[in-house]
Design a protein around this nucleic acid. Structure first.
Length: 355
DNA sequence: CAGACGTGGCC
DNA sequence: TGGCCAAGTCT
């Protein structure tokens, strides 16, 4: 609809020169300068960026450390069984990231063969790497002049220009990408620190809720600050109410072992091991319901899960030939915990994991 | 393209 | 408490 750029959303040309300088100077004093993935190794940077999608730094650190200890190179990761990768990822959430990471590792080894492209567009071909992640990887690893637009940058820019449009909004998003690119420093050598500085400004100063404008290096340019509405931005569209789902899962128990099945890749907890739903086929044998237990309600972003676990048992003599199959596996709760279970089931398994 | 996709932290 | 959101991407 060829709308003119709204008033107040263009920036004085002199900012172009000062913006990055100001952010970097601030970052030298107040930024996060020693995170574990602050390296030039593209593999580690890529790994960290994927883990950090929608996930905060303190949550990621232990997972990241375990991953690089287990798989120090992209070749090692590519050679690992997907199941081991999912197990190491369990608890971190958004499990499609782990499946994509593993698939991407194999693509990197096969297609790139040890040379890393410096072009974000090449990275963005990989599963699980979008525009912002690709830009971050290339900026950190190679100094490529590419703009990121994550939640931090979005919040900073929306406040800076006093954009009151409720988000998400496609037109605003497009505009923010343009601004982010226009604000890039000229020098590639500045890119790694500049990119980190933007993220840190959003994470440490221009926070959601009440921002710390008193410590903001660019407050003098900030429209929201000038107008006194920084805390009210960004505006958000109302979200649809979160539906509740009731799941009845079955714990078929044979002695101390339970029957586990792998969840379909599409959907909640995709690829992880879990207890089967009540409507899934039972393992061979005759089973009878023994008990039932309601788990504490579990909140996902888009669902509220109420899980009931029914324990089913079978006469002991039928269990002698309990064998795993392509349908599922027999294992104790303790053994299953090592595969990596979804959070609520891990909590349940803990109570069954006799030492 | 709006909705799916986890978990933990914050107030 | 419950709603909101975090270094987003995929379909």
């Amino acid at each position: 609809m060829a709308k003119k750029r709204e008033k107040g959303k263009s920036f004085p040309p002199q900012w172009q020169a000062l913006w990055a300088e100001r952010l970097i100077a601030w970052h030298r004093v107040a930024g996060r300068r020693t995170l574990p993935w602050h390296t030039r190794d593209p593999y580690r940077i890529w790994l960290s960026e994927v883990m950090l999608q929608q996930t905060q730094v303190p949550t990621v650190i232990p997972y990241y450390e375990r991953f690089v200890a287990t798989w120090p190179t992209v070749e090692a990761l590519a050679a690992a069984p997907l199941e081991a990768v999912l197990a190491a990822w369990s608890g971190l959430g958004y499990y499609a990231r782990a499946r994509n990471l593993h698939r991407a590792a194999q693509q990197i080894v096969r297609a790139w063969g040890g040379t890393w492209p410096r072009d974000p567009d090449a990275w963005a071909q990989l599963p699980g790497v979008g525009r912002s992640t690709a830009a971050a990887i290339c900026a950190f690893a190679f100094g490529t002049r590419a703009a990121i637009l994550d939640g931090n940058v979005e919040r900073v820019l929306v406040r800076l220009f006093g954009i009151a449009t409720p988000l998400p909004d496609t037109a605003v998003k497009r505009q923010l990408w343009q601004i982010a690119e226009a604000l890039l420093p000229e020098s590639p050598t500045a890119m790694p620190e500049y990119t980190q500085a933007q993220m840190d400004l959003g994470a440490l100063v221009c926070t959601r809720g009440i921002p710390n404008c008193a410590y903001c290096p660019v407050a003098q340019w900030c429209t929201a600050y000038a107008v006194g509405i920084a805390a009210a931005l960004p505006q958000r569209k109302a979200r649809a109410p979160v539906p509740e789902i009731d799941w009845t899962l079955r714990a078929y128990r044979c002695g101390t072992r339970y029957w586990w099945v792998q969840r379909p890749n599409q959907g909640i907890w995709g690829g992880l091991w879990a207890l089967p739903h009540a409507d899934e086929p039972p393992p061979p044998g005759s089973w009878q319901r023994a008990s039932s237990e309601a788990l504490p309600a579990h909140r996902l972003t888009h669902r509220r899960l109420r899980i009931t676990i029914e324990e089913w048992t079978t006469p002991a003599h039928l269990c002698y030939d309990c064998e795993s199959s392509t349908q599922g596996r027999w294992a104790t709760a303790r053994e299953a915990l090592a595969w990596g279970l979804p959070r609520p089931l891990a909590a349940w398994a803990e109570t069954r994991a006799v030492s």
